[in-house]
Amino acid sequence: MSAAPSYNFAYLDEQTKRMIRRAILKAIAIPGYQVPFASREMPMPYGWGTGGVQVTAAIIGANDVLKVIDQGADDTTNAVSIRAFFAKVARVQTTTHTHAASIIQTRHRIPEKPLHAGQVLVYQVPIPEPLRFLEPRETETRKMHALEEYGLMHVKLYEDIARHGHIATTFAYPVKIEGRYVMDPSPTPKFDNPKMHMSPALQLFGAGREMRIYALPPFTEVVSLDFEDHPFEIQHFDQPCALCAATGVYLDEVILDDQGGHMFVCSDTDNCEERRAQGHRGALAGHRLEAGR
């Protein structure tokens, strides 16, 4: 009797993982360049992170510790199920702590805690082509990348200023890599753009439906596009996190009732929980009841 059939390590077959690794190596060699790869069907719908999952499956090893976040949170459906998926098919350790993870797969956020060398950040990307909304032809956008014709990207920013008085793009804010390729940082808030610049961690981007992989090797120059008289700015919040009183972090608005009540809380749940464990208390954190009263 043989053992019950099980998945190949990390779900994908070895040939597929090799193919993806080759694409990743090429992507690292040309920072910001979109490398086509033969994206596979995954046991999840497109738009749920098939690209990120394939990249993670190709690079994960038995000793890796995996963290998955979805809009900064460790405990939403997407994050929980991808973590469970890899715990099952690769039998790896998982964690919610940013500093303890060796691979962090993310959907649309970069953790607040600075990443360190040796960590890999894997992004799930819906539309890898930053020029797509202005130029629908793939043949043309590829040519524009090849010839470094990026005037069109500024047309979009111009439109923003003409309509709203300021650059109203707040997520998927286009960046230029090492003075060469213009890249879509996936729909992360522009708040996170400065974190990509000169990051000691390796950053990999996987777009499953669009079949593209691109990458930022550690310590890569990442510059957000802007105008001389309308420079790039990140979002600012005029109040701290309501739970952990953190400032200078990205906050989510949570609606409390139908009377217009709302609160702002950290989008990065791990950072928020850690701060609360250290004793930081926000305005709405609630306080332990006194014994006997």
Partner: peptide, 16 residues
């Protein structure tokens, strides 16, 4: 305005 400005931005105009 963006239609007219596109060529300017394509040749490096970066001042709105």
């Amino acid at each position: 305005g963006a239609n007219v400005g596109e060529r300017l931005m394509a040749v490096g105009g970066r001042h709105y």
